[in-house]
């Protein structure tokens, strides 16, 4: 019995599989370890951080979380982030739907040029334009508001592109039939077309949420106070005080709190997440 199993194990095929898993596990370890080390360090005491190299803390202390929550107005940052991310998503829903539909279904002069101009946006990230955009926000008297963070993202080339593809996949006859029945194009768009391409919306929503939740540099520039700071900026503020530089357990606890919402969302909706990134990634 044992010999049989041994034989099986050393069959070339099995050996190959083992090697396979070996390599994969090694890579997975490299990529996952930083997160796990952050996770366990958040529960350590300061002296453990300085003097131990054990992976698990001696006991799961919650002190660092208490400390962090007492220093960082985490709830406010969280609310600001949610406002920014979901408020933006709401507005983007309208901007991309209309533009995408126009590009998918209508013919108009300069269409190709306009589309190219739109796609160029993919090449220029908001952090590159911090200086002029900061001046614009300043002139609009919107500094230190959640709106200011959102404005540069309202037009989304990626979203328009994605939905244009989706709307194109719907047979044109459906629209014609609907219009023949006396429905307006908007009625058709909202009652028939959008429900048909729901997966594309989900994909866009998840990518948009992820992207904006993680945004850091632009919000850093336009926010000044707790009133508008988002989580990532709050984390940086906390880290910048050399106060926390000495307390890595606190800093890791803060990092965990900032990263956790999306990581949890990701773990729960893994499949949807991965698929969204694949579709948007491929087509952007």
């Amino acid at each position: 019995m044992d010999i049989l199993r041994m034989k099986q194990m050393f069959r070339p095929k099995t050996l190959q599989t083992l090697l396979y898993h070996g390599v994969l596990i090694f890579c997975a370890f490299l990529i996952v370890f930083p997160f796990l080390w952050m996770l366990t360090s958040a529960f350590k005491t300061q002296s453990e951080i300085f003097h131990d190299i054990k992976f698990f803390p001696r006991a799961f202390h919650l002190d660092s979380f208490r400390e962090v929550l007492s220093i960082i107005p985490f709830d406010k940052y969280f609310i600001n982030t949610v406002k920014f991310v979901f408020g933006l998503l709401f507005v983007q829903f309208f901007t991309i739907t209309f533009a995408a539909y126009a590009f998918a279904r209508f013919r108009f002069p300069l269409k190709d040029l306009l589309f190219t101009l739109l796609l160029l946006q993919l090449m220029i990230a908001p952090q590159t334009l911090v200086v002029p955009n900061y001046i614009i926000i300043k002139n609009l008297k919107l500094l230190d508001t959640v709106t200011a963070i959102s404005l540069p993202y309202v037009a989304s080339a990626m979203g328009v592109f994605l939905l244009r593809q989706a709307f194109r996949s719907i047979p044109a006859e459906m629209e014609e039939a609907a219009v023949m029945d006396g429905a307006s194009i908007e009625y058709y768009l909202f009652k028939i077309a959008i429900p048909l391409v729901k997966p594309s919306y989900t994909a866009f929503a998840l990518v948009s949420i992820n992207f904006h939740w993680n945004e850091f540099f632009w919000p850093l520039i336009v926010t000044d106070t707790v009133k508008s700071r988002v989580l990532t900026v709050g984390l940086a503020m906390f880290a910048e005080s050399s106060e926390s530089a000495a307390a890595w357990n606190d800093l890791m606890a803060a990092t965990l709190l900032v990263a956790a919402p999306l990581v949890l969302l990701f773990l729960v909706f893994q499949k949807a997440f991965v698929e969204s990134f694949m579709t948007t990634g491929l087509k952007a």
């Binding site: 990529i31 939740w213 945004e215 850091f216 989580l231 990532t232």
Partner: peptide
């Protein structure tokens, strides 16, 4: 999952983790 998850970690958080 193991390979993909850093995509959903903010760069700000990633920087802190690696700094540590």
């Amino acid at each position: 999952t193991a390979f993909f998850y850093p995509t959903v970690i903010p760069m700000a958080a990633a920087s802190m983790i690696w700094l540590y």
